[in-house]
Design a protein around this nucleic acid. Structure first.
Lengths: 389, 389
DNA sequence: CTGAAAGCGCTAACAT
DNA sequence: ATGTTAGCGCTTTCAG
């Protein structure tokens, strides 16, 4: 309630325009115009434990304008060096922390990158994130990480969160159950670049970073063949993911190349989870015509196979050869050590982030790139027992 | 350059106050006042692929005020149900995504929690983060994760980033080299609640979540004693961390309780890293009077000890008993399976986040709580060879 | 070299 | 039930 400065009454006041940004009032009784001046800066506010200093606080303390403070803080063109020093000093004194929310709002640029991964309990995604963060940090970007937990709905909600937080770009590895892509497209609609890695979205024409899954799988299968295994099975990933299909194809083509038959009962579909891996192992090893080797879509799967074999007294590598994919640290520790296809995990994160930051910098829609990193077979003892036995 | 609306000249123009938020100009030549009206909303803007719809776009489209839109979007008190529906429909049509940056700025509340961890490559911290995220998500909070990488400088910079991003609260597990705490105190200075977990800061009077490290270590050591081991060594963590000291004390007290001598040459300080663990194992096992069991400060350390033993043909558990701490998934996979002290890792994250959110909700400085979660000894084969042999 | 003003998108107090 | 206004903290023309 505004009171007249003269009669101190409230009932006869009407507004009468704005002058120099201040509301002007008119008292019908006293017939005067007046403006309410902002209350003197309550010093209580600045001393308030909770108050975070702003550029206005610095400006007031130095009796200069906030524009000058802003410029001083940004080593802007030509600022009086004295002024600059004074501002910097005061900023430190007031423990000034720039409010990036405000800055982002003004600039329509949050300097934040979103990452969506299905999980980060196995070593794979954390390592990718580390690589990505390393590159992002160098360029002054922050990273917010979302876990979709292999759930499509969660992934959709992750996408909204990132959009609402106005991230400048997004790195994505899809869930295994994602079949609709509207939530990804909305990034594009708003001009937010997206780079897929590892589990890419084939329906969208964005940049992608992958390892050569086909080649890795081919080498793994070839290795088993060359080590004397005859009935080589494969536990695959969900066919919705291209990496599953590529690894499956690598496996098949190696068999074909070496004139091995492709038997459908030796190909069991998993979903990359431990549980599915265990069931697949069970299915394969209890069949009449059981395999003497298994190439697994990833290391966690291979490790479940080994645990299953151990539990049932199946000797690795003599009765069963096993090869995995990823070189999970566990692979080197399990007994016998697991042969696996090493992929440059951290490098994948770095590469994806590098591409993304470039797309952000360029701004306009760029031609998507497809980066294909190569793999390397790491031979350990889980796959070398047949020939020598 | 403002041109007079009448004479179209520029030289005689001066400003003459602001009316209804619009700058008013005066042409000295023509002696008229005029206002430059904002150019008609360029419809190009709305159709612009990049443009993100705002409440103003919705308001304009519906010819209502933005407050009404804001209210409709928030199921506010009493809004005409028709209006609400229209707004919601238009919001969907324009693919409206609320700008949380703006919202946070206005509310001085970002609905974001910062987490600082030393690393997230072992399973431990990712699991904690998962637990924390789970609780945060339920309350509508986002989480931004920072890795200090065991570096004090990085940790300081992490703290600044979180402060600048105006997180509403912070969860921290310190680096092993943090000895100064100014960067933590600044959270408190700005009224941002902090909860430490696992690696707490003893100098700060904040809430903390820990497991009963002492008790876990005591049980582990007691277990080794009861299984017939006589010369029980300990590879500890850096004494800067309280958890190291607590585990060390648990170890010592168990020895004392059972009237075992405490020999300083059987206590080797590690730093939780693999490398230090390997060196510690080497130091212990090449000493004249080598131990017949080692209680390790954590599982990664214990695993290095086992790998060292394997490499040098030391048979576990017969010549050397090993116990770890944490129940890392690797512990169950290594051969022989590793006896370890299980701690409720995900629960630790959940508890810490619950406490933090409560402190945020209460607002004022609350009495810090100390949560102590309990541990459980998981007996596997790495520690049960002596008695039976 | 510095200041004044506008505006980023939103909420909320106030006024109808 | 809806509109008006101010302001969150910052950057960025524009005008001296």
């Amino acid at each position: 309630m505004v009171k007249c400065t003269k009669c101190n009454q409230v009932h006869a006041i009407t507004k009468s325009g704005i002058v120099r940004g201040m509301q002007r009032y008119y008292c019908k009784d006293c017939k005067i115009n007046f403006t309410l001046h902002p209350k003197a800066p309550q010093s209580s506010n600045i001393n308030d434990k909770k108050h975070m200093a702003t550029i206005v606080d610095i400006a007031r303390a130095l009796n200069i304008s906030k524009s000058t403070v802003s410029r001083a803080l940004h080593e802007h063109s030509d600022i009086n060096i004295q002024t600059r020093k004074a501002v910097l000093k005061m900023a430190r004194k007031l423990d000034y922390q720039p409010n990036l929310l405000a800055k982002s709002l003004v600039n329509s640029k949050s300097n934040t990158i979103g990452i969506i991964v299905p999980e980060f309990l196995t070593y794979f995604f954390p390592t990718i994130i580390m690589g990505a963060q390393e590159v992002a940090a160098k360029e002054g970007y922050n990273v917010v990480i979302c876990q979709s937990q292999e759930s499509y709905d969660t992934e959709v909600s992750n996408a909204h969160v990132l959009l609402s937080n106005r991230v400048d770009g997004v790195l994505i590895s899809m869930t295994r159950e994602t079949k609709k892509f509207e939530h990804f497209k909305s990034f594009d609609r708003h001009g937010i670049p997206v780079v897929f890695f590892n589990r890419i979205c084939e329906e969208l024409n964005t940049s992608r970073v992958l390892v050569n899954d086909y080649e890795g799988a081919y080498k793994a299968t070839e290795h088993l063949i060359q080590n004397g295994y005859k009935k080589i099975a494969h536990i695959s990933g969900p066919p919705s993911l291209r990496l599953s299909r590529n690894r499956l194809n690598g496996y098949k083509d190696a068999l074909i190349q070496y004139k091995f038959p492709i038997r459908n009962n030796l190909i069991v579909e998993g979903d990359l989870s431990k549980k599915a891996a265990w069931l697949a192992a069970q299915k394969l090893m209890t069949a009449k015509n059981r395999p003497d080797a298994i190439f697994c879509v990833n290391d966690p799967t291979a490790i479940q196979v080994m645990l299953y074999a151990k539990k049932h007294g199946i000797r690795i590598p003599y009765e069963l050869g096993v090869v995995g994919f990823s070189d999970d640290p566990m692979a080197a520790v399990i007994e016998p050590p697991l042969t696996t296809v090493e992929q440059p995990v951290a490098e994948m994160g770095r590469t994806a982030m590098r591409i993304l930051l470039k797309e952000i910098a360029v701004g306009a829609s760029v031609v998507p790139v497809n980066e294909l990193l190569s793999t390397k077979l790491i031979v350990r003892q889980s796959s070398t027992g047949k020939k020598s036995s």
